[in-house]
Design a protein around this nucleic acid. Structure first.
Lengths: 117, 117
DNA sequence: TGAACGTATGAATAGCTCTTCAGATGGCCC
DNA sequence: GGGCCATCTGAAGAGCTATTCATACGTTCA
């Protein structure tokens, strides 16, 4: 893979920057987390759940997608622990897993709104 | 294309959740932004640049990837305005575009570190 | 000018992601 | 139990993404 140690232009900066990198495990998990957020429909789901808990059918109506598609998306969000779910009879209610998720959404939106003016 | 209006289970919640959704443009841009962050190598690049400005060759050494691959990644980061660049002779130095980028990284890492214990 | 270096780009292939469809699961009510 | 409803799951195809290789560009220095 990499050209580690070869052709360094500023060896001192390279060494310093290397010391600040994250672990492999953190990097992978973080990339996976961002990957799950990298989809307009899933972002809409997160956006909706940031307001209130919703069941799958209602979520499908809110984001205008099929219940099946929404269920697939929810599975991914669940696997990354971005949402929680609870059963109530034949309905399954989803909500955001913790504050970080809403914060990531807000921070991202803040950035986007500056870029779009 | 969704089943808007049909089969609502809690119509009132659906209407309220819809009112809180983002615009199409924001959603797309935000998803694209997260997409660019959804890659371990690009995250390493952002992580390194959060410390200090670096030229492409040094970045390649830091993240242990080929200069070509790093250049491709930098292009994507540039297109999403997540990094800036300045030329100095034959070197090109990259740095983070603004505070939001580092904040997104930090917030994401905070979440990840809780999940990984 | 010509060579060397750092960086950028285009094209191509392998691998992954989204959506849909069909069907399975599990709970409620008659 | 039998039918219905909400949700979940697996498989398949279209579309997108990452990496590599080859090459082009632009700058510096002899």
């Amino acid at each position: 893979m990499g050209a580690q140690g070869l052709h360094l232009i500023h060896p001192k900066d390279v060494r310093a920057a290397r010391a600040a990198l994250c672990s492999e495990a953190e990097l992978t998990f973080l990339a996976d987390t961002f990957q799950i957020l990298a989809n307009p429909t899933r972002l809409q789901i997160v956006c909706a759940l940031a307001q209130r808990e919703l069941c799958v059918g209602d979520l499908a109506a809110v984001v205008e997608a099929s219940p099946s598609a929404v269920s697939h998306h929810l599975r991914q969000l669940r696997q990354m622990r971005l949402v929680r779910h609870r059963r109530q009879g034949k309905l399954t209610f989803y909500s955001l897993a913790d504050e970080h998720v809403a914060q990531l959404l807000d921070l991202g939106l803040e950035h986007v709104r500056e870029e779009l003016e």
